[in-house]
Design a protein around this nucleic acid. Sequence first.
DNA 1: CTTGGAGATAAGAATAATTCTTACGGTGAT
DNA 2: ATCACCGTAAGAATTATTCTTATCTCCAAG
Lengths: 158, 158
Amino acid sequence: MSETEEPNESLPQQMRSFEEACRDANLKLTHQRLEIYRELASATDHPSAETLHRRLQKAMPTLSLDTVYRTLATFEQHHLIKKVQTVDSQARYEARMIQHHHLICDTCKEIMDFYWTSFDASSVPEDIQAWGSIKNKNVTLYGTCRKCQAMKKGGNPA
Amino acid sequence: MSETEEPNESLPQQMRSFEEACRDANLKLTHQRLEIYRELASATDHPSAETLHRRLQKAMPTLSLDTVYRTLATFEQHHLIKKVQTVDSQARYEARMIQHHHLICDTCKEIMDFYWTSFDASSVPEDIQAWGSIKNKNVTLYGTCRKCQAMKKGGNPA
DNA sequence: CTTGGAGATAAGAATAATTCTTACGGTGAT
DNA sequence: ATCACCGTAAGAATTATTCTTATCTCCAAG
C-alpha cells in the first residue's frame, strides 16, 4: 500500500531548501530565479522552458525566454532540477529530485511521476556489474491513461 | 544466467525482415533506405541522424542529411525503428525492436542495450492500474562504465 | 524490356529550439 | 551609501530539423 505512496514536501519547505542550496552554490537569489523555480516546483506536468515562460509572463511581463533557458541550465548544472528524458524536440524539466519514475501516456503525452520502493530496493542483474557501477535506476512505463482511453471508446466529440 | 543474454538475429536475417516490412507498408525499397537501415542496424551506439549521415557519406557521397532525417522519420512512423529517449539535443535512433533496456554511462554518454527477462515478466505496482493500461516497461540504468572508471583512476593520459 | 505515374531524393531555403554577445542594472559585502 | 560582480534583457547567432520544388527512381502493367 505504501509501495507507490508519494513522499510529500510542501512548497514553502521546498523553496527554503532551494534558497539554502543556492547560497551554498553561490548563486544569487534573484527574483527571476525564485519565480522560475517556484513555477517549476508547483507544476506537475514537467513543463518545457517555453511553457514555463508563458506561465510566468502574466506575473513578470519583462521576463525573457532566454533567462528561463539560462536559469534552467544553471539549476541543472547545480543539480537543483533535472532535465526529463523525452523524444520531444523541446526539453522538459522537473524540480522533484527524490527517486521516482515516470508514466507516459502515448496519447496525450502527459508525464506522471510515480514511486516504486520495492523496485528501488531491488538489485540489477549480476551481469550488469561487468559493465561498470550503477548509480541510478529509472523505470519508464508507457501506456494510455484513463482519460484518453475514455476518449477513444466514446469517440472524441470535439 | 540467461537473465541478460542477448537474443540474436543476424544482420542478413534482419535485412530480410525489414524488406518484407517495407513491402507490407508500401514503402519502396530504395538504395538510400536500405543503406540507412543497414547502417543503423549494424551500429551498437544508437547514432544520431548526423552520425549516420557522416558514416554513410563515404559510400554514398550524394546522400543528403535531409534524406537521413526524412527516412528515419518514415521508419519510425512505421515502427521499423525507434527514437531513443535522451536529454541530448540531437535525437538518437536504434533498429532493435525487441524488448530491451538501456545502460547509460554518465561520462562517455554511451548507451548500451541490455536484457532483463525477470523484470519484463514482473508486474507493476497495483496502484498504477488506476492510471490506465500499461503497454511497455523500460528501465534505464545510469552509471559509469569500466572504461571511464579506469580513466578517472589512472588519470587521462591524453 | 519499355513506360507511366506514384512516391522518393537532392539542394537550398525556411523554421524551431537553444545559446551567445553586449550593455545595463540589481545584489550584497563593505 | 558605494562598488565590484554577477545576472538580466534584447537582439543576433547557432544548431537541429523540416519544408519546397524540381528531378529522379522504383516497380507494375503493357
